[in-house]
Design a binder for these strands. Sequence first.
DNA 1: TGATGGGTTGATATTTTATAACAATCAGGG
DNA 2: CCCTGATTGTTATAAAATATCAACCCATCA
Lengths: 153, 153
Amino acid sequence: MLKHKHNHDECIESALEAAQKICEERETRFTPLRRRVLELVWSKHQPITAYEVLDLLSEGQKRVAPPTVYRALDFLIEEGFVHRIESLNAFVGCSDPAHKHQGHFMICTKCSNVTEMNEKSLHDVIKKAAKENGYTYENSILEIAGVCENCRN
Amino acid sequence: MLKHKHNHDECIESALEAAQKICEERETRFTPLRRRVLELVWSKHQPITAYEVLDLLSEGQKRVAPPTVYRALDFLIEEGFVHRIESLNAFVGCSDPAHKHQGHFMICTKCSNVTEMNEKSLHDVIKKAAKENGYTYENSILEIAGVCENCRN
DNA sequence: TGATGGGTTGATATTTTATAACAATCAGGG
DNA sequence: CCCTGATTGTTATAAAATATCAACCCATCA
Ligand SMILES: [Zn+2]
Ligand SMILES: [Zn+2]
Ligand SMILES: [Zn+2]
Ligand SMILES: [Zn+2]
């Protein structure tokens, strides 16, 4: 269950438009394939595996091969339009692609919905912890498993 | 490079003894296989993959099959003697097996050494963030990538 | 024009990581 | 000893990701 009902088509559309715009700014190539893969990642509005993307991408045409999908995903991750959820081997669209970052997520163990946290304070605490332990911070993944509000009711 | 030089044999030995003791308390079975796998996980004192464990375990005897290793690792993770590092598909011995928890790690991108953080404050901040976002906290993984003190020099 | 070169995609094969399913063995209680 | 449940062995397969090389696209410029 999604946290809030919303027009998901619009939601996808705005993600695609944002990506397009950012790529123009950065002069990187938002090719039809990359656009289509980003659309498919958003289509589920939940974590989606590379092979699920592959299946969707292959519908109504010759089956594509894994590298096609992985390369597109690599690009989208590199640009910050998609995050990889390590604990699920799955991918999810970024809720704030304008600002490059690694994602901090909460994952509902009942419904599999994922919420991205864009909280600077949390980010700062993590950076600080790294520093205190003598590490020069590069990036981090945080994946919290729990039960979401909807699923508790 | 390890942060501090130490007698690694002793280090392994004490991890094994601690595990043995905990299993006696819990009345779970610390079989020779499970003991051996835990020993191998500790032997590297760095994240080790399941198949590396498999190779080591197979030395000087008939090659064991993957399920043998994965089942032992499952047990050790369940008991809290080993953590899985999601971003590396690898496993590492827990530095504080007496208190069950999921691990929070820093991973050096130069030397691959891993430091486990057993900081309650960090744990509390993460729990708090989950609560604020409407989630009932179950557990979490945190994996910070950075450069360790040794590797900066 | 058409050669050149970088970036992208296609295609084939393989590697790496993990699990399913069932048989054999072991350890403890009656 | 026999039964039972847990553990381990064995075979096969699934799932996730990558290596490699060929084909294609397209902008630049000789
Ligand atoms: Zn994001
Ligand atoms: Zn839920
Ligand atoms: Zn630990
Ligand atoms: Zn290092």
